[in-house]
């Protein structure tokens, strides 16, 4: 399997302060990687490096076979939920279309091909019913679905998600994770998802990357989701209970909710 993300000896410093270092990571096409870590540990900065918005202070990074380019088409991005005024003059389909040509300057008309791709992306995430509804009138869950469609409409090789589940209800969280899972299985899109919500990704994530104290550790759910690892990660008394195929994480600090 080819790696769509390759990090070698990667380190990131910010204003003289070292955020993290010594990261070696390969993410394969179609893999679902979940990144865990407390606030301020540098999870979002890792995504910014992969987006080409920040430079590593040491080491090397490749995304889709080359160095990450700002605005490169191989990477889709879904951040935390979108706050918009109810008066925003955009419909769901307009937001999705930004994923295709929102970064292009100059006037341009939407051709038939663009409209078809936008419709297909909306249908893929089950948002066809509200394609023409104003963005400001969508619920948070609906809006996040539309943003997944926006990130996927350009057919990226990698999808980076920065806490896309925060402040969504459990049903919407499961829906969003389900959409990502279906996509990576169907199209081989690698998914890197930063989250504090572990439960929605249990059973879906292939691997977990845990970040604490500037060091990374990575492994499967069985290796990483243990009481010892998570307690250290969050600096709290976390307990992981396994019962047959089901996993429950108890005692997670809930400040982020």
């Amino acid at each position: 399997m080819t790696s769509v993300i390759e990090l070698r000896g990667a380190a990131l410093a910010y204003g003289g302060r070292r955020l993290w270092s010594g990261l070696d990571l390969d993410v394969r096409a179609g893999e679902f990687l979940v990144v865990l870590g407390a606030n301020g540990t540098g999870k979002s900065s890792l995504l910014r490096v992969l987006l080409g918005l920040r430079k590593l202070s040491a080491g090397s990074v490749r995304v889709g076979g080359g160095p990450p380019r700002r605005g490169g088409g191989d990477v889709g991005y879904v951040p935390q939920r979108l706050e918009t005024s109810p008066l925003t003059p955009l419909r769901a389909r307009d937001l999705v279309r930004f994923g295709l040509d929102g970064h292009r300057f100059g006037p341009r008309r939407a051709g038939r091909a663009v409209r078809r791709r936008v419709d297909a992306a909306l249908a893929d995430v089950g948002a066809a019913a509200y394609a023409d509804r104003p963005v400001g009138l969508l619920s948070s869950g609906e809006r996040q679905r539309v943003r997944v469609a926006q990130a996927l409409v350009a057919d990226p090789a990698v999808l980076l998600c920065d806490e896309p589940l925060s402040s969504l209800d459990p049903g919407s969280q499961a829906t969003v994770v389900g959409l990502l899972d279906r996509r990576r299985r169907a199209a081989g899109t690698a998914v890197v998802l930063v989250t504090h919500e572990i439960e929605p990704v249990l059973g879906v994530a292939d691997r977990f990357l845990c970040l604490s104290g500037g060091r990374f550790s990575a492994g499967t759910a069985d290796e990483m989701l243990t009481s010892a690892v998570l307690s250290e990660l969050y600096g709290a008394d976390v307990e992981v209970v396994r019962d047959g195929g089901r996993v429950a994480v108890l005692g997670l600090p809930r400040a982020d909710r």
Binding site: P79, T88, F98, V135
Partner: peptide, 13 residues
């Protein structure tokens, strides 16, 4: 794009 969703717009270049 930048007015309604600056984070994603920046990520898209």
């Amino acid at each position: 794009f930048a007015s309604v969703d600056p984070d994603v717009a920046a990520a898209r270049g």
